[in-house]
Design a protein around this nucleic acid. Sequence first.
DNA 1: GTAATTAATTACCAAACGGTAAAGCATGCG
DNA 2: CGCATGCTTTACCGTTTGGTAATTAATTAC
Lengths: 113, 113
Amino acid sequence: MNRSPATTTTDDLFRALADPTRRRILDLLADHGSATVGELAAQFPDLVSSGISKHLMALRAAGLVIATKQGRNQIYAIDADAMEQALRPWLAKYEAYWTGALTRLRDAATNPK
Amino acid sequence: MNRSPATTTTDDLFRALADPTRRRILDLLADHGSATVGELAAQFPDLVSSGISKHLMALRAAGLVIATKQGRNQIYAIDADAMEQALRPWLAKYEAYWTGALTRLRDAATNPK
DNA sequence: GTAATTAATTACCAAACGGTAAAGCATGCG
DNA sequence: CGCATGCTTTACCGTTTGGTAATTAATTAC
């Protein structure tokens, strides 16, 4: 039962991304690589840690994040594959509109820094 | 005062995208090019048209959609620029993770259909 | 001018959401 | 062992959200 959290639906994805605190958690994980609940909670002085825990559960349920237990800490990290796979099909529908971004991405991909 | 609806914040964007009905409205507009409230409402048998109107106002407030009055109809269409400009900065943070998508986008941009 | 059509607004309701506090569960340490 | 630590779960609360119904406004048709 420790399988991947059932495929992330578009619904799950966008519901999870709707909250600014959850997006900031993702940002922190993206910057930091991975972090424990305590480390994350320390970045939110206005929130109590169980609130962070709930947000993390939401992100985990949406499949955007994975947790690995290490001692009594939970190490959280972004599940890049799941995030991409959930977001890409949706993005694909709108890529046609974003020729500007497409060009920019082509540049970035063709001429990686 | 008919200028672009103040810049769309990341918050506005994701809050607007959080609702499945609003995402489906965007899909319909993306497919159909543009549509009136009535045409859109016809695609949602389970919803009453004032509900659609409210969703459209939400999308408009988020800057994802623009409306032009034509007779007694309102013609809605996606505001592609606003959508891109709101989404791109956020996407940029995660592009690094999605090398697969990057490659695919490079192909699409380099070798347009 | 009057009636019909289209959309937006308002008032209201139930459900979902984000937050806290407190209890519960493992795990590590003296 | 007994206690502290780190995190999750539960119970609860106020606010926001998505929905409907009814009213209002504007435009077209008769």
